[in-house]
Design a protein around this nucleic acid. Structure first.
Lengths: 117, 117
DNA sequence: CGGAGTGTGTCCTATGTAGGACACATGAAT
DNA sequence: ATTCATGTGTCCTACATAGGACACACTCCG
């Protein structure tokens, strides 16, 4: 399993090679965290930050927020709220899709998008 | 919005009318919580308990665990783990279904269940 | 009446979450 | 050589989570 801190560090250092504004300190400042704290996060000495901070970090790094949250072991609040409003329905759907291959899930996504409900 | 504590209390007292083993104390003991704590939960003086305790409570009351967890403002860990493994896919699907009517979601559930992927 | 069982008030605690403050050593640039 | 920025080590904190312990007052019922 890819760990949160490693991914963040790699992403940031890759960006940094082209733009020196991606130092740990500057990124930390832009997303509103203390450098020492971000340092600990990148070395997995501290757990991933809050959802809000993780999303800001994703923005800064050009990463998909849902992916970064997933690496942090979380599911974004807005998705949880959608599920919470119709728990039986969504619980069943998601459990059904657990072992479905990607392409099957994608087909469903497309069907729904183009759906005429 | 129906509150967690009220639902639990109502459910329990309904059961109690037919079976006096559904006193607060006895239920608390069966699910492994202190009576004083369960009392606070039912009166919303304390927040809903942990996911594990909530699920045991649901079992005791004959309620759907996902529904009770939803009332507790939570989404069960196992669902979150399914989403976390394919965050982009599931995030897109769930957001698409946000405003879809129940019957549309149900149709998708059925399609997937009978699906030949 | 006297006990058994019931719900609740009060107080306490351990662990986790989400960071901030500050100092320090190193390295890069001028 | 000095300045400046960089990453990091150490220490500290406020709040939330998830309860346990115990005592108390009421009530039901044999």
């Amino acid at each position: 399993m890819n760990h949160f801190g490693d991914v963040v560090r790699e992403r940031r250092e890759r960006l940094r090679r082209q733009d020196r504004r991606y130092s740990l300190r500057q990124v930390a400042q832009r997303i509103g965290l203390e450098p020492a704290y971000l340092s600990k996060i990148e070395r997995s000495e501290a757990a991933p930050p809050s959802e809000a901070a993780t999303v800001r970090l994703a923005g800064e790094l050009g990463e998909d927020p849902d992916v970064l949250l997933a690496l942090a072991g979380k599911v974004s609040r807005d998705l949880q709220d959608i599920i919470r409003k119709r728990p039986r329905l969504f619980a069943e759907l998601i459990r059904q899709l657990k072992d479905a291959p990607d392409h099957a899930v994608l087909r469903v996504v497309r069907e729904v998008r183009d759906g005429d409900w």
